[in-house]
Nucleic acid binder design. Structure first.
Lengths: 336, 336
DNA sequence: CCTCGTCGTCGAAGCGCTTCGATTCGCGGC
DNA sequence: GCCGCGAATCGAAGCGCTTCGACGACGAGG
């Protein structure tokens, strides 16, 4: 592997000149810069990562901790992981993938050995062992998600409260007064993963505030459970004309299938809306109105915030991404 | 952050002694080793990753290139990624996640900058731009998968040929003579991802060799496509009594649902076997006999091989993991 | 014409670690 | 009693890079 030494020799300059020519941290004559770049090109030179870390006090690597629990919906999880990696690459950062197996230990390890410049935390739960560690480590970090206690933390997340309200706003505007919510599997609420809880709480609160009748049911990924959830809602809301689904793809597909089997047409008999889904509802039968949960919307800002923290202090705060609404015709006026 | 210097001072020895005490590369008096370890403990010392890379010529990081295509089945993909990370951690290695966006460029970047000691390649296709690059880079690498041309490569994979034959062996033993195969979506075969092709080819060849009637259909992830595949098989094999499914979870679930709807009982009317599935078929209705595709079975050997390559040369070769068969009662004798 | 500021460049000092001799000490063998 | 040897330890030389202070050249201002 060619070293900066070889480049300097070939370009006929000193190694410090090469370094400055490449980093741009001092002014360099145009002619010199060109010669250096040519030398780099012909030698295929790339700075040695270890040397750069040692001398430069910067690794250009972020750690990504993204626990995968048994109830985690893998496609969504994967989408967030990839979004973080792509965002990092836009800033010339690489991503080291940590798993749950080591627990918070892995985080401590990579941070204290100066392997990473910062940490991106996915799938935050309310009392997460990673959070206290992060606070004590005092290292650039951004959480994608909002834990109960955000003290001293930098967080980015979808504004689930606004999303819940937005979903009811659209249904109310169409004339609906009685709306059910199908949520994620029990286990996800139990584990303290917080966004489903936030959506649910905001949904129920917004419904009350708007004077609407609302109810909530959780659904696992099997047919009987989804059927039970739908029945539960129908029982709680005899006059239900609207349905919001805040759950993963398979549950929503299953639910639509059940409605079809029962001869309930969408939106003729029931208006349906998919809220905060990280997949496309375009190919559903029928396509659903949706408030999309796009990984890039939160992961790119999260990485950008981590970068800014590396460059200097960023005051702890929470950034909420406002929800968007996409119409696909699955909401109509309720039939009397 | 405490440095090796601080440890040396606290333990009252030189830094080289600390280094040797920790690495064990030279003999150290027991008493000294203990003092060093105590100092490490009280200071919370961890070697600076960059310094270690620079001086030690080893990064203890592997790059993982795991392209995610639109047709890729995310849960399986994720399972393989995590398996690699866990395997790496067992050897004190970390994993840098590369994505498709940079193409082979990302690979070149991390290798030429000496950021990683080696590469693990997932989801190999027959003509993969990463492969030529790897060959020219001359760096420790293990492919999980077997490309058409394995010259100069170290590969590990499930023995799909043996798995295909094993599935027919069990069906034949139960008395079946006419067996259909449902495979992955078209796009996966088109793209050159090679294990589905290998399974299919081996299945058809083994069927011919055993003098059985066999047929093959691909199925996308939607109901109509699965239905069409089943109909296609029924058309090609009027006397079909056995069905092998080599496809992802949703297709298999859908297929079982269709069979149920049509009043075809398993294994009463049709014997069904799930082959090379990376998910559990235990909770299926009914549970299916399976030849499981366990990520750890290939990823752990793959990482181990990469480690051995870092330590010295390992001759290029292909390691095939023999298939196992798990009975769950979904295969019975065919009714006349 | 001399001085001063600017621009472009260079040499050298680390960054924290690994590793290669070299050194010291204690012990057994002759 | 001396030599030789192995065990334990140390000092120093890098590894390849960044960055700081210094220096020469050159143009502008007095």
């Amino acid at each position: 592997m060619a070293s900066i030494h070889d480049v300097a020799k070939l370009a006929g300059v000193s190694i410090s000149t090469v370094s400055y020519a490449l980093s741009g941290k001092r002014s360099i004559a145009e002619a010199t810069r060109i010669r250096v770049n040519e030398a780099v090109e012909t030698l295929g030179y790339r700075a040695h990562a270890g040397a750069r870390m040692l001398a430069g006090d910067r690794t250009n690597i972020f750690a990504l901790t993204a626990p995968l629990h048994s109830e985690t919906y893998a496609p969504a999880h994967m989408a967030f992981v990839l979004s973080v990696v792509r965002a990092a690459r836009e800033h010339d950062y690489d991503v080291l993938l940590l798993t749950q197996d080591e627990g918070a230990g892995g985080l401590r390890r990579v941070v204290t050995s100066s392997l990473v410049d910062g940490v991106i935390v996915l799938d935050v739960s309310d009392d997460d062992e990673r959070i206290d560690l992060l606070r004590s480590l005092d290292i650039p970090a951004t959480l994608v998600g909002v834990p109960r206690d955000t003290d001293g933390l930098v967080c980015v997340d979808m504004d689930f409260e606004a999303a819940a309200d937005l979903s009811l706003e659209h249904l109310a505007a169409a004339g609906h007064r009685s709306v059910g919510l199908i949520g994620h599997p029990h286990a996800i609420y139990d584990r303290g993963s917080n966004f489903p809880r936030r959506f649910r709480d905001a949904f129920l609160a917004a419904g009350a505030e708007r004077g609407m009748d609302v109810a909530f049911e959780m659904a696992d990924r099997d047919g009987p459970s989804v059927r039970a959830a739908l029945d539960g809602l129908a029982g709680a809301l005899p006059g239900m004309t609207g349905l919001v689904m805040h759950s993963d793809e398979s549950v929503q597909t299953t639910a639509l299938g059940i409605l079809r089997d029962r001869g309930i047409s969408v939106p003729g008999d029931l208006s349906v809306l998919s809220a905060c889904s990280s997949f496309s509802t375009e190919h559903f039968e029928p396509p659903l109105d949706t408030i999309p949960l796009v990984p890039d919307d939160t992961c790119f800002p999260a990485v950008a915030l981590a970068i800014r923290q590396v460059g200097g202090k960023v005051p702890p705060h929470v950034e909420l991404v406002p929800p968007r609404y996409i119409e696909r015709g699955s909401i109509a006026a309720p039939v009397a």
